[in-house]
Amino acid sequence: MHAHPRHMGRYSVFARGFFRERGRKDRTVVVVDPRKTDTAKLADLHLQVEPNKDYELISAMRAVLKGHELNVDRVAGIPVDTIYAVVEACKKAQFGQLYFGMGVTMSKGKHRIIDNAICLIQELNAYTKFGLMPMRGHYNVNGFNQVMSWLTGYPYAVDFSRGYPRYNPGETSTIDLLLRGEVDVMMNIASDPGAHFPQKAVEHIARIPLISIEPHQTPTTELSNIVIPTAFTGVEVGGVAYRMDGVPLELKKVVEPPEGVLTDEEVFKIMGKKIEEML
């Protein structure tokens, strides 16, 4: 509720709809988090999972869903009775939705955790309608995945170095390439890896030429060789962005950008032409 302040009010928990006239009262909220967050305080059930034990919890839920009995007192720090209760609540739901964040994709096990969660959701669909959705941090994370998918067939981490698109997270993903020191030039577009990447990856970024397409001074621009400022999309220039549920929306231009500042699209078009001349 702090990273997406209006998510619960507008879309997920408190929103009143055709089937959920009473909003929050007609819904059950389960929060899985090692900490007692403000969101957890609002929940009907808080599964205070031990850090890095998400995989165990999901596996236990899948086992219970398949009718197995758990022969322990606790899984991942959670009493088995609570796990039975949660699985029962999920089965009885008319329409369930799992919203997940980086806790599931970045703790121990990485993408295998979400792989397991996808299996859980698939199996829950034998009983009821259930879906899952990543909580997108930036406004157009989903848009990139959509554009990339219709251009190459893969959502992100696409390697064109062999002349055709390859996709293998862990091999062709940015952080892993940086950690192995394989990258020799990086172009960073409207994001801040200097502040968010692991230390070793940032150390490699500091060693190689870095180009930043970025309107603000950030830790990443401080490491850059070239900074190309652009107009803010959605404030100073329009365009299309995809909401986290896959709905495309037209961003508006509200004010003029500072004089002489180009848009991202213009910068890439000019760059594309120059690259074409050099190759």
Partner: peptide
């Protein structure tokens, strides 16, 4: 820089429009 490099990485993209992403 990009043309002369062996393995460039383009990273970010999440705060720009789909039109710019395509380019």
């Amino acid at each position: 820089l990009l043309v002369e490099s062996k393995l460039p990485v383009l990273y970010g993209f999440s705060s720009i429009s789909c039109e710019a992403q395509r380019e």
